[in-house]
Design a protein around this nucleic acid. Structure first.
Lengths: 233, 233
DNA sequence: TTGCCCATTTTTGTATACACTATGGGTAGG
DNA sequence: CCTACCCATAGTGTATACAAAAATGGGCAA
């Protein structure tokens, strides 16, 4: 089943990058997960050379961290960095949607509207995996269609990093990080060509998301009580 | 003389990345330059493995382009991409200086002022190399001291990409891309804590820089007449 | 029981070999 | 004279081998 992968030229390392990125996005690979080179090589049926190239690229995208002579791990940004990631994303995604306001064809708006419907439905059914998928699809659609492709690429990376910190700092009590209506407000502004409104909508959306996270000081994070509770129970 | 380089852990590929990036920044490696792996390996005294890792990272930073089975080359962005790079840099550097306004210590302002003096002096003496160096030092200082480190890293990359397109599209008639006073205006705003003013100063500075470039349609660039003239003359 | 040390094992860092692909020049044919 | 093809060369893609560093775990002493 990996035959078609090896067919093309440099597909193999790109494939590994995509697979790992996707796994991180969908939170199947939690932050901190070890990624040994030989294991990945066996899984994907390639040698360490290809794996190493993929890991080097993933490190450039800030998906994993690579320290000398140590195993690569999925990034686990600290709380300060988390705030900075959100601030950067507010700036970049705000500009992208402002540029995009009034520029989207009706079909493109329909694509976005479709994902929003699907997101709502998945939330109603409690299917968190599907909800995340459609939410990401919305934001990646905006990134991919940014009139400024540089900002689009930056946004793609920031969406990925945001997913990582949400996985890291999501409040356990919340089943979902869903903010009803935010996406609809955004779409309305995009349709109406309201650039400032779109910027505000994104800003508001991301600020709301950030507030849903548990970003208290780290003492509370390394929760010895919970660990002992788990062991004892 | 390369002994101290190999001493540390993963210094070697970082060293190659730095050297090539520096060479591109100072315009010693013009856009389009071929970078064969074996040649670089011999120059830096390492095998292709290390060179390949360095090239992979440089490609992630958009310093070079890597196409399958082809030699890596220093990036040569087209005109559309050049506009997009400038737009992205206006956004990011504008935010960085806005965040920085009023936050710099007097010593830090003095460092900036020193580079500005040196830049002026180098311009007066016609030493374009030194002028570029100090101009870059100013912007990299802002990037390195950004309160938001994510935006700081983004700005560093954008400064690099801007240098590349300036090298590519600088009007041959101009000896220098220097805009007197722009940097001083910025510093004044940073000192006064005038965030909006700082943002405007950067915006104005970058817009002025972009205007100094020769960004006409490509017909003029792929200048067959000049090529034939060179062959015939 | 606790803390430390050393051997073992795991995992990464680097070099090298071989296969495959692109590139350029030269030659035969029109 | 120009075009198309072919071959030699240059260069990258991948796998593998060996060296070095870090993590692991058991045993010993305080």
């Amino acid at each position: 089943m990996l035959a078609e992968v090896k067919a093309g030229g440099r597909i193999s390392d790109q494939h590994i990058v995509d697979m790992i990125r996707q796994a991180v996005l969908s939170q199947r690979l939690p932050p901190g997960t070890r990624l040994p080179e030989v294991a990945l090589g066996e899984i994907f049926g390639v040698s360490r050379s290809v794996v190493r190239k993929a890991l080097t690229r993933l490190a450039s995208y800030h998906v994993i961290t690579q320290q000398p002579n140590q195993v690569a791990r999925v990034c686990a940004p600290d709380i300060d960095e988390t705030h900075e990631i959100f601030a950067a994303r507010r700036l970049v995604e705000g500009e992208v949607v402002a540029l995009l306001a009034g520029k989207l064809e009706p079909e493109q708006c329909a694509v976005l509207a479709g994902h929003m419907e699907a997101e709502k439905a998945a939330y109603a059914e409690g299917d968190e995996g599907a909800r995340i998928e459609h939410s990401l699809a919305i934001h990646h659609y905006l990134a991919d269609h940014s009139p400024n492709r540089i900002l689009g690429k930056m946004l793609s990376e920031l969406i990925l990093r945001t997913s990582i910190v949400i996985a890291l700092y999501k409040q356990p009590s919340l089943a979902s990080c869903y903010l009803e209506g935010d996406h609809d407000t955004l779409l309305a502004c995009l349709r109406d060509g309201d650039a400032d409104g779109a910027r505000r909508a994104i800003d508001n959306h991301l600020a709301g998301l950030e507030k849903l996270l548990d970003l208290r000081a780290q003492e509370n994070r390394i929760d010895l009580a919970a660990i002992f509770g788990k062991l004892g129970g």
